[in-house]
Simulated assay, not measured.
Amino acid sequence: MTTRDADPARTLLELLWRHELPPRKGGRGPRQTVSVDDVVTAAVGLADREGYDKVSIRAVAAELSLRPMSLYTYVPSKDALTVLMVDAVAAADTPIPADLPPRGRLAAVARQIRDEFLAHPWLFEVPAWRMVLGPGRMRRYERQLAAVDGIGLDDPGMDRVIAVLTQFATGNARTALAAARSVREQSDADWWEVYGPVLSEVMPAADYPLSARVGAVVGELYQAPGDPAGDFEYGLQRLIDAILPG
Rank of each mutant, 00 (worst) to 15 (best):
F117T: 03
A212E: 08
D190C: 03
Q223E: 14
D38S: 08
T41K: 07
R174G: 02
E116V: 05
E20R: 12
R4D: 10
L239W: 03
G150C: 07
R105I: 05
R105G: 04
P95M: 13
A163T: 06
Q186L: 13
W17Y: 13
L153F: 11
P23Q: 04
D190G: 02
A229Y: 04
M131P: 00
A42M: 08
L210R: 12
E220L: 07
Q167T: 06
L199C: 11
D231M: 06
M158C: 13
G29A: 06
G230A: 10
N172Y: 14
T170L: 14
R160Y: 15
A61W: 14
S187N: 04
P22K: 06
V60S: 07
S65L: 09
D188W: 15
G246N: 03
L133V: 05
R67Y: 12
L100E: 05
A61Q: 09
L165I: 03
Y141G: 00
S182L: 12
T170R: 07
F117A: 06
G51R: 04
I113G: 00
D38M: 02
A59W: 13
D37F: 01
L66P: 00
L221Y: 11
A205K: 05
W17K: 01
P228A: 09
L221N: 04
S70M: 07
W17F: 11
D227R: 02
V109W: 03
R114E: 14
Y141D: 13
V75H: 10
P68N: 09
P245S: 12
E193G: 14
I162Y: 07
D154Y: 08
R103K: 08
P8F: 10
I113S: 01
A147T: 04
A110P: 12
D149Y: 10
S35F: 00
E185V: 00
D93C: 06
A147Q: 03
A128F: 15
Y234H: 13
R31F: 00
F168S: 00
D48M: 07
T3Y: 15
I96W: 06
A179Q: 10
V75R: 09
P197L: 03
G157R: 10
L21N: 10
A92V: 02
G29Q: 06
R4I: 12
L236C: 08
V218H: 07
L106P: 05
E142Q: 11
E201Q: 14
R4A: 13
A179V: 09
G27V: 13
L221R: 14
A173E: 09
G134C: 08
T41M: 03
V202N: 07
W122L: 00
T73W: 01
G136S: 05
G235N: 04
A206T: 12
M138Q: 11
P228W: 15
A88S: 14
A92Q: 13
S187R: 02
V148M: 04
